[in-house]
Amino acid sequence: MRVPFIKMHGLGNDFVVLDARVEALPPLGAAMAAALADRRTGIGCDQLIILEPSDQADFRMRIFNPDGGEVEACGNASRAVALLHGRAARVETAGGEITVEPTGRGARIDMGEPRFEWDAIPLAYAVDTAAMPVAWEGLANPVAVNVGNPHAVFFVPDLEAVPLDRLGPEIEHDALFPERVNVNVAQVTGPASITLKVWERGAGLTRACGTGACATTVAAIRRGLLAERQAQVTLPGGTLDIEWGDDGRIMMTGPAAESFRGSFDWGDFV
C-alpha cells in the first residue's frame, strides 16, 4: 500500500503530513509514528501530522511526537496545515478546536484561551501557577500555562547561559508534571519582543515551537513584562507574532512552507 505524504515546516519545525480526509488510513500506533519520524531510517520530522474527517469541525488534526506519543496541540503544524488546506477552517485537535486562515506565505491561527488552573496544566498538586515555588539549578519560579498542551515558562537574564539541552529533559519528566511538560526559557529583550528556546515534550530541542511562543507571551503579559498584550517572539528558526486579545483568545501569525512530496510503502513501517 503506497501512501502519499507532504513534508512541511514552520520556521524549521518540520512535519510529515498524511492526509486521510478522503481515503482512510489503517490504524497507526506509537511504534509506526516513531518509525516514520526517524531521521535515519524513516522520512524524518519533528512531528507526524494526520488529517482526518471530523463531526464537529471542518477536519481533525492528530499530532504525534518523534517518540510516538500523541499530543494535543502544535502551533507550527497548524500554520502548515492552514497553508495546505488553502482557506479558512475550523480544526478539531485533542487540545480543543482552533481556527486557521492562510495569509500568503503563512497563516494566522486562533489558538483559543489559555488555562492557568493547576489541574488544567496539569500539575501533581495545587500551586500558584503565576510563579511556581520550584527550581532546577538556575531555573526558578516558572509560569505554568496550558495552551492546548502544558508549558512551563522560565524568564532569564541571559538565554544563552542556560543549558536547556541538559535541564530540559529533567524538567519535562519531573513528577510535578504528570503528563510531562514543554520547557520554555525566555529572555524579554524589549517592550514587545522576546527571545525564546523550547525543549519540546517528546521531541527535545526544536527550531521553533508555536504553542511555546503563545505560552511565553501570555506568561510575560501575566508577569507584567511587556508594554502591551502582544509580542514578536524570536526562536532559533525565526519570528512569530503573538497577540493575547482582550477577549482572552491567543492569535498567532507566522510563516509556513511546503518542502516536498513523496510516498512510502505502509508495510515497511508496520
Rank of each mutant, 00 (worst) to 15 (best):
M1L: 12
M1A: 14
M1H: 14
V3F: 05
F5A: 10
M8C: 10
M8W: 00
H9K: 04
G10W: 02
L11C: 11
N13K: 03
N13H: 07
F15G: 03
V16L: 12
V17W: 01
V17K: 00
L18D: 03
L18A: 03
D19E: 11
R21Q: 12
V22Q: 15
A24C: 10
L25S: 10
P27R: 04
L28M: 12
L28W: 02
L28S: 06
G29T: 06
A31P: 06
A31V: 11
A35W: 09
D38K: 01
R39C: 10
G42Y: 03
I43S: 12
G44C: 08
C45M: 07
C45V: 14
L48C: 06
L51A: 08
E52F: 08
Q56P: 00
D58Y: 09
M61C: 13
R62N: 15
R62A: 14
D67G: 08
A73V: 08
G75K: 04
R79M: 08
V81P: 00
V81S: 07
V81Y: 01
L83A: 13
L83N: 10
G86F: 13
R87F: 08
R87Q: 14
A89W: 10
A89K: 09
R90G: 11
V91Q: 11
V91N: 08
E92L: 11
G95R: 04
E101K: 07
E101H: 09
E101T: 13
G104P: 14
A107K: 05
A107W: 00
M111N: 09
M111P: 11
G112K: 10
R115F: 10
D119M: 01
A124Q: 12
A126V: 07
V127Y: 02
A131E: 14
P133K: 11
A135Y: 09
A135G: 12
L139W: 07
V143I: 06
V145I: 08
N149E: 14
H151S: 13
A152I: 08
A152R: 01
F155H: 05
A161K: 09
P163I: 12
L164T: 09
L167Y: 13
L167W: 14
G168H: 08
P169C: 15
E172H: 11
H173S: 15
H173M: 03
L176M: 15
F177C: 02
P178E: 12
N182F: 07
V185H: 01
A186C: 04
A186G: 10
Q187W: 02
V188K: 00
S193N: 13
I194H: 01
L196V: 06
V198W: 01
E200N: 09
G202K: 03
G202E: 12
G204K: 06
G212A: 05
A213E: 06
T217I: 03
A219H: 02
A219E: 04
R222P: 13
A227K: 07
Q230C: 14
A231F: 06
A231W: 04
V233R: 01
T234Q: 07
G237Q: 07
G238Y: 01
G238R: 00
T239V: 13
L240D: 05
I242H: 07
E243S: 13
G245H: 11
D247M: 05
I250A: 08
I250L: 06
G254F: 02
E258S: 03
S259N: 12
S259R: 12
S259A: 15
G262H: 10
G262L: 10
S263D: 15
D265V: 09
W266M: 00
F269E: 06
F269V: 09
V270R: 11
